[in-house]
Design a protein around this nucleic acid. Sequence first.
DNA 1: ATTATTTTTTACGGAAGCGTAATAATGCGT
DNA 2: ACGCATTATTACGCTTCCGTAAAAAATAAT
Lengths: 239, 239
Amino acid sequence: MTQEAERAVAREDNALLAALPTRERNDAHRSSQLFTLEFGAKILDANTRSQHAYFPIRGAVSLIRTLSAGPTVEVGVVGNEGMVGIDIFMGAPVQLNDAVVQGEGSAWRMSAEHLLARFQRNGEVQRQLLRFTNAFITQVSQTAACNRAHDMEARLARWLLMMQDRVAAPQIRMTQQFLAHMLGARTASVNEAVQKLEAAGVIGHRRQEISVLDRSGLEGMACECYAIVCRVYEQAILN
Amino acid sequence: MTQEAERAVAREDNALLAALPTRERNDAHRSSQLFTLEFGAKILDANTRSQHAYFPIRGAVSLIRTLSAGPTVEVGVVGNEGMVGIDIFMGAPVQLNDAVVQGEGSAWRMSAEHLLARFQRNGEVQRQLLRFTNAFITQVSQTAACNRAHDMEARLARWLLMMQDRVAAPQIRMTQQFLAHMLGARTASVNEAVQKLEAAGVIGHRRQEISVLDRSGLEGMACECYAIVCRVYEQAILN
DNA sequence: ATTATTTTTTACGGAAGCGTAATAATGCGT
DNA sequence: ACGCATTATTACGCTTCCGTAAAAAATAAT
């Protein structure tokens, strides 16, 4: 309950911006527009220099890599705790992932120039952004290990938990086809895993929707990766 | 051949340091010690704040994540083109990977305090380090996708190529057991893949050693990930 | 309502790789 | 030279997940 309350508060603003000194925070808000994260929208393109950074207030954005043979794999998810567009201040020539909205919500959108200027001018802004980036690296590392070691069922459970944390709703809306793209698997394999989790009573599902029924049960079926990544982001946000 | 020559030149110093303005570069050398990368040495520990950063001149360092169920997975490799210890300037509370020497060589070793001070003081140092870090993120992302999508044989080929680039020798020394840890697989599976590559005539092997016989043949058997990661590092190093 | 479309579910043979463990080869110490 | 320890290889049954694709169910369009 207390945790619930904390979350509600946190959701009023992006956690990264919220952690900035008042002055910088206000500045960030003034130089951003509120942007609606619409389901399925591709907000950043692979092989392109990002024009904008996004600081989600609510919602989830997946970073997806497409391999030449066709399959796509999600390498990370960003929500309230972070931002999309790190390539802007990391000095990347281009970035290689697509960023796609998975869970509807809203975000502050800031131009690349603005972000870069803020990053270079203010030490605290820089410090926060780099701390997040480091946590993000850990997330991607964990995903790399997870993809090698854990099976569909555990990975699906993990993904649902991460998504639910970010959309802040018990239902998660998406087709299993789409989910298969995230998990780098066949629709049929995903379906099997969905049914197993449902048989275990931790989720319910219908067309285009999965709902979490037993959160802690689901946590029990997810691989360790979920808890690890959660902890890393918590630590990154604390000062 | 020209490429060969370029490589030889590059190997005289770590590429990241070499790209710095003379002044900063000299400073870095003065405040570092030459450190021998001994095969198997663990130079950074998971769950610890790094005390030193390493800028390899020759040799390869693997970043390895150990999962609680036991298996270990390599999430990235660093050699001449980069450095180990990014957590120092990224403001990480701790970092979660072990860093283990895979290919013998040498590196400049710098204290964490020194590195942090240089990072914060000089824009060009910062810029280079962040550019590398961004390339590293791409490497890890690619590994995440690769681990999901590509089979042992292709991943082994990729790993051998990356390792060879960094140790700058046709032979790569390590037990298949160790290799299995890197690839997150059984020794037996690795052995099978080794034999397939050998049957294809692109590598030779004997106890504790694999040698690359047909470099471009091996490239043909590796997944796209090898070329992608190479390109990313090239771009990161160019100004 | 009926048809078309999208999404989910089921099916089946097959490949890759696992867990386990026994056997063979190699190299080291004395 | 001989025995010991490490490393590599082979074996076998099994699980997971793939490729492919057809059937069923849910929704949307006319």
